[in-house]
């Protein structure tokens, strides 16, 4: 399922919303998760899961084409951990 399909389902289900508003709702959800991580805050969504940043150390990498060593800088990556309810739902 894609974001566009989610927006469609929201617009169908919540009849008081226009398609445009449904789009704004769905975008707001994912943007606020993104913004919260950017600020260094984590997001916990009960029953679904949590999002936080994980730190990756600097490492030595290699250009696969030339074999030259390059250093890959330290960075942060978004990480999602499924919540208990979601985990259980998948294994019923």
């Amino acid at each position: 399922m894609t974001k566009a399909q989610i927006i469609e389902r929201v617009a169908e289900q919540v009849t008081t919303l226009t398609k445009r508003q449904a789009e704004l709702v769905v975008n707001t959800i994912f943007n606020s998760v993104r913004n919260s991580l950017h600020k260094g805050d984590k997001t916990e969504i009960r029953g679904f899961g949590s999002f936080r940043l994980r730190a990756r150390r600097m490492k030595e990498g290699r250009n696969p084409k030339t074999g030259a060593t390059v250093s890959v800088p330290a960075k942060k990556v978004p990480f999602f951990k499924a919540g208990k309810e979601l985990k259980d739902l998948l294994n019923k």
Binding site: M1, T2, K3, I6, R9, V10, Q13, V14, L17, V25, V26, I29, F30, V33, R34, I45, G47, F48, P78, F80, E85, L86, L89, L90
Partner: peptide, 28 residues
């Protein structure tokens, strides 16, 4: 209510084994 509806929708899609693809965000 809308937030709950969307979360339930995402959960039911994942339960079916289907992926959820959010452009600009990522894929579950």
């Amino acid at each position: 209510d809308i937030v709950e509806f969307i979360l339930d929708l995402l959960k039911s899609v994942l339960q079916k084994g289907e992926s959820v693809k959010i452009a600009g965000f990522g894929n579950f």
